[in-house]
Amino acid sequence: MSTIKQFQVTFDCAEPERVARFWCEVLGYVVPPPPEGFATWDDFKAAQPPEQQGSWFVCQDPSGVGPRMYFQRVPEGKVAKNRVHLDVRVGTGLVGEERLATLEAECARLVALGAVHVRTLVADEENESCITMQDVEGNEFCLD
């Protein structure tokens, strides 16, 4: 039996490039070079049939460690809570007020990029603090 070593995360969305560029900013990811034979992504898009222009976009971890993120245009909008979401680990190893301050600072940065702050869950006897958010198209994620 083989072991899977790589995977990509796929987002259904209305505006693939917009959502991809948001996640590049969140994660420190980059947009890869355009497909072979094209000087820019705009050149690539212009060469596609009109119905395919802007139908997908990607971003990737510049170190090659994290998964590639693929964003594909779908006709329907988001109507329910995500069954799977990303936990963006900005507070790893931090506890108490230091953790909460770190999460709140990252939350403010992402709100400035178009994210929505949904709620802050403050630490209790069993769990550390985390912040629930939505990306630019309403996909839930957590700052953890």
Rank of each mutant, 00 (worst) to 15 (best):
C13W: 00
C13D: 00
C13F: 04
C13E: 00
C13G: 04
C13V: 05
C13Q: 00
A14T: 11
A14E: 07
A14C: 15
E15A: 10
P16N: 08
E17P: 13
E17C: 06
E17G: 09
E17T: 14
E17N: 10
R18V: 08
V19F: 13
V19G: 05
A20I: 04
A20R: 02
R21N: 09
R21I: 15
W23N: 01
C24V: 02
C24A: 14
C24M: 12
C24L: 08
C24E: 04
C24T: 06
E25P: 13
E25F: 05
E25Y: 13
E25T: 11
V26N: 01
L27C: 03
L27I: 05
L27P: 01
L27F: 01
L27H: 02
L27T: 02
L27M: 02
G28H: 11
G28I: 12
G28P: 02
G28F: 10
G28T: 02
G28W: 04
G28D: 00
G28Y: 02
Y29D: 01
Y29S: 05
V30G: 09
V30D: 03
V30T: 15
V30I: 14
V31T: 11
V31L: 10
P32L: 02
P32G: 01
P32A: 01
P33D: 09
P33Q: 11
P33H: 10
P33E: 13
P34I: 00
P34E: 04
P34C: 03
P34M: 00
P35I: 13
P35N: 04
E36Y: 06
E36L: 12
E36V: 13
E36D: 06
G37D: 11
G37T: 01
G37Q: 01
G37H: 04
G37E: 08
F38W: 09
F38N: 08
F38D: 03
T40G: 03
T40V: 07
D42A: 15
D42K: 15
D42P: 12
D43V: 08
D43L: 12
D43M: 11
F44W: 05
K45L: 15
K45I: 15
K45M: 15
K45G: 10
A46M: 07
A47F: 12
A47L: 12
A47Q: 15
Q48F: 02
Q48L: 10
Q48C: 06
P49S: 15
P49E: 07
P50R: 14
E51C: 04
E51H: 15
E51G: 06
E51T: 06
Q52R: 14
Q52K: 13
Q52W: 14
Q52T: 14
Q53S: 09
G54L: 04
S55Y: 06
S55L: 08
W56Y: 12
W56C: 07
W56R: 11
W56S: 12
W56I: 07
F57M: 06
V58P: 05
V58K: 00
V58A: 10
V58E: 09
V58N: 08
V58D: 00
